[in-house]
């Protein structure tokens, strides 16, 4: 269990993290979500012992980063955002070096490296120099070095940034698999990533924790509002005034024409309707009465994206 307790980190006058408190339970994948420069990396750097807290502390089990930083570091595997590796070393050499500093016993080093080669798919590049690797392979070597000592906790700072879509899917499924056995903290600003991999989410904005919970819990917060997206042909501008008068409709807004940027092209327009209740049936009847043709209609549920946008803007 990792507990971040009233963590504040200041650099001169700038407060990067402000009184942040949250928990990471054993064996869960926690998504650490926030816009750029929200304090994600700084928080992770404090957890991993790179930076010391200005105020507050982080506890890993019974250990406190202020006193037992070295003991905590042993339990953690860390992949920083930019994947900084020694370019002049070969992949094998590098993994061996990290394993040695991490105190993996000499008899086990070979076995651990072999496992990392399997888990991270490094067999093709194991004899290559790190400087020659593609971004995807660098990321995998970075993950390999983070896991070489079989840590209880993995701290991954934007592990999929800069990867191509195939690699992203691969790394995500790897993280998900790892999350079955380990505690993982994963920072990102990509929301689909959180939905794909994380069991719980903490949202940070301007150094403050603004929400935390499972993805379901968070999306529930944004519910109550329901939205219907509809694309109609033949209604013209009268659609807005007619629909706005229906009971339960809060707001009707134009979403732009289907093909171009204008609202109405070929007399087709799309609208977003905010309502208190499900009005799809009413809307359908209305269209029939007026001779409009509904080309598309769907109910939009509140997503993590809405929660995120509400909380961080």
């Amino acid at each position: 269990m990792i507990r971040v307790l009233g963590l504040t980190k200041k650099f001169n006058e700038i407060t990067a993290v402000n009184e942040a408190s949250f928990e990471v339970r054993d064996g869960e994948v926690l998504g650490f979500l926030g816009p750029n420069a929200a304090g994600k990396t700084t928080t992770m750097r404090v957890i991993t012992g790179f930076l010391a807290p200005t105020k507050g502390t982080v506890k890993v089990g019974e250990l406190d980063v202020r006193e037992d930083s070295l003991k905590i570091r042993k339990k953690i595997g860390y992949l920083p955002e930019s994947v900084p590796l020694y370019d002049d070393m070969k992949v094998y050499e590098y993994l061996k070096f990290i394993a040695e500093v991490r105190g993996v016993s000499a008899s086990k080093i070979k076995e651990r490296i072999k496992e990392m080669i399997d888990v991270c798919g490094l067999s093709k590049v194991i004899r290559q120099q790190i400087g020659e690797l593609s971004k995807g392979y660098r990321q995998r070597v970075g993950l390999g070095q983070a896991m070489i000592h079989d840590p209880e906790i993995l701290v991954l700072d934007e592990p999929t940034s800069g990867l191509d879509p195939n690699q992203i899917v691969e790394i995500r499924s790897l993280i998900k698999r790892l999350g079955e056995k380990k505690t993982v903290i994963l920072s990102t600003h990509i929301l689909s990533e959180v939905q794909a991999t994380c069991s719980r989410v903490v949202i940070i904005n301007e150094g403050k924790i603004v929400a935390s919970g499972t993805t379901e819990e968070l999306t529930k917060q944004a519910e109550g509002k329901e939205r219907v997206y509809v694309e109609v042909k033949g209604a013209g501008d009268s659609f807005e005034s007619v629909v706005a008068n229906l009971s339960g409709v809060n707001k009707v807004s134009a979403k732009g024409g289907s093909a171009s940027g204008g609202n109405i092209v070929n007399n087709i327009a799309s609208w977003e309707i905010e309502t208190d209740s499900d009005i799809r049936e009413t809307l359908f009847n209305l269209a029939v009465e007026n001779g409009w043709k509904i080309l598309e209609m769907r109910r939009e549920q509140a997503s993590l994206e809405d929660v995120f946008r509400n909380l961080t803007t």
Partner: peptide
């Protein structure tokens, strides 16, 4: 420059 400092100084060494 390369940021490797961050990994080096988060290894369990003083």
């Amino acid at each position: 420059q390369s940021g490797t400092e961050e990994l080096l100084l988060t290894l369990p060494v003083r």
